[in-house]
Design a protein around this nucleic acid. Structure first.
Length: 595
DNA sequence: TGCTCGAGCGCG
DNA sequence: AAAGCGCGCTCGAGCA
């Protein structure tokens, strides 16, 4: 059953092997290994560790594999979703020093739609079994359908486990290697040099989690509960009846039927039918009708308070109380977006409210501080580079800390808020009428502001045109580093134009922070060898242009220096403008941010 | 009870 | 179709 000697020979002969694990759960902090499987070509091996009639002791497996397989830096291990398996393996004492290629990430980089239909705007999936069906038309059972086999039919379970390793091998060799060959050098380089190393930073973040000051958050929760109760009573009194305030349908009836607020200009819901009109009660609508009835500000306050309760206080308190360390453990998904950014979930660390005190409750444990690195105007620096605009390039080179909105405002003799709205709208392709609405100015004024902006930065519109041209000619667009977003089989309308343009900007910024994060991680690994205090410096979270770390209080000044140096060491000698990181430390997430 | 969908809203 | 880009989460409503 074992015959690991033949595995060693085969792996070393090929230079590659694939690995998969079966475990008792998805939480890497508590899950236990059931078995490890390997494949080389069409041969597979299994190391049964628990639950089988005959098992190998964990110590024995660990010693042998660490010594014969995992310590070889010239071997490449193929894993589907390596972050998970490597994390489980690390928890069981395996030390894997092989090169890693992740078939899930490779799939995402070479086809960001995964098994979803690009035309339907579905949420992409990159599951091994779905991909095996897509490419090989092989139907594999889902884990939950074979979990019982472990006891009823161990041989069947073993086969299932080995199939995963065989599938990963096949996916890499038959699909991914040719796909990487077809793609540009940019995609290949990003895959091997950016995304693969990044896996280890994300493992560190997921392992570390975020410490919650439960007492402080409990205080917020108590205050919030009183607020919600008070507002509910007031609103129902105004409405003259009790109803479910969380139901937008019921609220629509109260506002526009009972209270007879004017419906002119209010958008209808999709499910509105001639007999039953349901009007939108979104924040934008409420703001618009705020002065037509005293109930509106109460509803706005109620929405804020319940969003806080249901979206943050309840789930964060619940999760942190489950953990002995008072921590929440957000996941950072490397294949979660179509533009190259990360996404986060369970809970989503990338949507913690800036206002309302949540970030004051996310803190560092005693003796430590949080360290926060924030790229200054990353997207506009990318725009400067991509558009080759002389003024923008001059601006950021003459003053690395320049504020583009301030500069535009001064040069064009407009308000900073106006300049900011125009600049922001430009990145997302905002049309003039919407710009006018958001600034509350006439259309002509909005057009004038936009003209002033594009006149100052003459390279921007031609760059936008270039992206559209590329899109139509090649059906994909690229970031500075060559990451691609494809539009195969998609109508190249204005919507696609906006998506494409935005991807080249935000996607480039995403590449940049990933490269900076890798440089920092590498530096930390080296320092950890020399100075044990650096083992306590941990990456905790990434929020698109921001990186959050935790470090011992006494080395915070050194860490600030290191983080700034490494995060700014992006595109040196290659980009036309510098990247600038604002780095600060503090006892909470709020305090650690540099204003 | 469990599923999907849309509305609404938090973040960059 | 979307009509301002990219995400994930919670709730209500409708359905089986």
């Amino acid at each position: 059953m074992l015959d690991l000697d033949t595995f060693e020979k085969a792996a070393k002969n090929a230079g590659f092997y694939s690995l998969d694990t079966e475990t008792t759960g998805l939480d890497t902090r508590v899950a236990r290994l059931i078995c490890i499987t390997f494949a080389v070509g069409d041969k597979a091996w299994i190391v049964p560790l628990t639950s089988f009639a005959e098992v190998v002791s964990l110590n024995e497996a660990r010693d042998w594999l660490n010594q014969h397989i995992f310590n070889d830096p010239n071997l490449t291990v193929i894993i589907h979703n390596a972050k998970y398996d490597l994390s489980i393996m690390a928890h069981h004492g395996f030390e894997i020093h092989n090169k890693v290629v992740d078939t899930m990430i490779c799939e995402w980089m070479t086809n960001e739609y995964g098994t979803a239909d690009p035309v339907k705007n579905e949420h992409p999936h990159f599951g091994l079994k779905e991909l095996v069906w897509k490419y090989f038309k092989i139907k594999r059972d889902k884990y939950k359908d074979v979990a019982d086999l472990l006891f009823l039919d161990p041989k069947g379970f073993a086969q299932y486990a080995m199939d995963d390793a065989l599938d990963a091998w096949r996916l890499w060799n038959d699909i991914d290697v040719p796909a990487l060959k077809r793609e540009g050098a940019g995609v290949r380089n990003l895959f091997y040099e950016v995304e693969m190393p990044l896996v280890f930073s994300l493992m560190e973040m997921e392992e570390s989690g975020l410490y919650i000051n439960i007492e402080k958050m409990g205080g917020l929760f108590k205050k919030n509960a009183e607020e919600v109760k008070d507002l509910t009573e007031k609103i129902c009194k105004h409405a003259g009846k009790t109803f479910n305030l969380a139901s937008s349908d019921q609220l629509s009836d109260v506002l526009f039927k009972d209270l007879k607020i004017d419906v002119a200009g209010i958008p209808l819901h999709k499910k509105s039918v001639p007999g039953k009109q349901i009007y939108s009660t979104a924040a934008k609508v409420l703001k618009h009708i705020r002065h037509s009835n005293k109930i509106i500000p109460l509803i706005e306050a109620y929405r804020k308070a319940t969003k806080m309760r249901d979206g943050f206080l309840m789930p964060l308190l619940g999760k942190s109380k489950l953990s002995e360390e008072c921590r929440i453990y957000p996941e950072f998904n490397q294949t979660g977006t179509k533009i190259g950014r990360l996404s986060s979930s369970n809970p989503n660390a990338q949507q913690m409210p800036r206002e309302g005190g949540i970030r004051d409750c996310i803190s560092a444990p005693t003796g430590h501080v949080l360290c926060c690195s924030d790229y200054s105007q990353a997207e506009y620096r990318v725009l400067a580079h991509q558009s080759n605009d002389v003024n923008l390039i001059k601006l950021y080179n003459s003053d690395p800390k320049a504020d583009i909105h301030q500069w535009v405002a001064k040069e064009a003799a407009i308000e900073r808020e106006e300049a900011k709205a125009v600049g922001f709208g430009l990145l997302y392709g905002l049309a003039d009428p919407s710009l006018a609405a958001s600034l509350k100015v006439p259309l002509a004024k909005a057009q004038e502001l936009r003209a002033k902006w594009t006149d100052l930065c003459k390279g921007v519109l031609p760059y936008k045109k270039k992206v559209e041209y590329d899109l139509i000619r090649k059906k994909f667009v690229e970031t500075i580093w060559g990451r691609r977003r494809r539009f195969f089989g998609v109508r190249l309308d204005d919507f696609a134009h906006r998506q494409a343009f935005h991807m080249t900007i935000s996607g480039s910024a995403a590449d940049a922070i990933k490269i900076g994060t890798n440089k920092l991680y590498k530096a930390l690994q080296e320092l950890r060898q020399q100075d044990p205090r650096y083992k306590q410096v941990r990456m905790l979270a990434q929020v698109h242009d921001e990186l959050v770390l935790q470090c011992p209080e006494e080395i915070q000044q050194d860490v600030i220096k290191l983080v700034k140096e490494k995060m700014e060491d992006v595109g040196k000698g290659h980009l036309k403008v510098p990247f600038v990181a604002k780095v600060g430390c503090g006892s909470t997430w709020s305090d650690s941010k540099v204003k």
